Simulated scan of single mutants.
Amino acid sequence: MSGEKRGEEEEALKTVELENGLRLVPRVKVNLTVYPSTPLSLNHPIDEWKMKRALIDFLHSSHSLTLPDDDLQITRINKRKRHHHHHSNPATAAVAAATLRVWDLPSHEFRRRLAHDLDGIELNLQGATFRLAASVPASDDFAAVKKEWEEHSAFRSRREPDTVVLRGVPSRWFAEPRVSSKPSMLVTHTIFSAFGKIRNLNVAEDDDFGKDTSEDSGDLVSGLYCKIVVQFEKYRDFHDALRALCGRSMQKEGSRLKADYEVSWDRDGFFRNSRNQIQEKNNMASTRASDHYKSEAPRRQAYNSRHSPDNARPRRVNPSLGRGIIFGDQPY
């Protein structure tokens, strides 16, 4: 193995420290789908707790992994959903879906092989046999993501991408303490400047994130998550930021929560199309105090986009309002 390759693999197992007490913690995430191996399995509704115990015990014996219950989440797929999603023989349709996360990674080899090792194994549960299909989420495979954007750029004869899209990070981690629980443009700018010089930034509440998860996955409060779109001046900084964000979760000092965000690169020219978005947001802006942040967001974006050649346009920010807009919400 070349020194460069070994260096990259060692790098992938390191924690990345950011500003504001935030860090990116390496982990391996595996998506599992559970299928019945025998027709008998279909007559046994899956007991999620027993299935979880069987899987955790299997990982302990096969990989010497000691997993807390929270690091394996199993959701039963009910029959109606199953028939809706699969037009195939019900005997081969999935009966459950699971997500496994492992934080203490012994080696890069372990990280690379875990999904491969779990794919196709069989579990016996109360006299019924189930088979697992395992895969790593597409966005966790940096090499594949990079290949995708390189092919996209070459095929469309476009310049290299420069914009990272992050969904599912807690709004309060990007807020100004004691000012607001809403995400702040200034705080977010400070955090992502760790990767390089930023050309453009957009931060918005992301109420749609997590809507597809099962109802018992926790209480989804409005404004809990935010979506961050950050455009770097240099391709190299975009590349390194995306590499750091792939295969990691975010944690804040003093918090046990590890935010399992989604990261991707911007295919749609978010900032090139942002004029239309600003117009749309202005039309929908509400005057209620609770919507203060949302209605100010377009003006914040106009302020922060002033360096972008794509967005050259007169500023519409009232200088007397500037500080209130940029440095968090007015207290109310």
Rank of each mutant, 00 (worst) to 15 (best):
D216P: 04
K182R: 12
Y303G: 02
E9V: 05
N311D: 13
K29L: 05
S249P: 04
G120M: 04
C226E: 01
N318M: 13
A128T: 15
D71N: 14
D329E: 09
K146I: 06
R156F: 05
M185G: 06
V229F: 03
T188L: 00
I121N: 11
E10I: 06
D310C: 06
G322Q: 13
T38P: 01
S88V: 12
P39D: 08
E280A: 10
R316A: 05
D57T: 11
S274C: 12
P331C: 08
C226K: 00
S139N: 07
D212S: 11
V16I: 09
R313P: 06
E160V: 12
E9M: 10
A154Y: 04
Y261H: 02
V30H: 05
V169N: 00
L24M: 12
I77R: 00
R315Q: 11
G254Q: 00
L245E: 10
T99V: 06
Y235M: 02
A96D: 01
A289G: 14
E160N: 13
D57H: 10
L114N: 03
R6T: 15
L65W: 00
D268G: 12
W103Q: 06
Y235N: 07
S181I: 09
G223N: 02
E150Q: 14
H63F: 12
D71P: 03
I77H: 00
D310Q: 11
R248I: 06
G168D: 04
Q126S: 14
W149Y: 12
T15H: 12
R306G: 08
F142P: 07
R288V: 08
R131G: 12
D219L: 06
I228V: 10
D47V: 12
V136A: 09
F130E: 05
V263D: 06
F58G: 03
G7M: 11
A93K: 08
S217D: 08
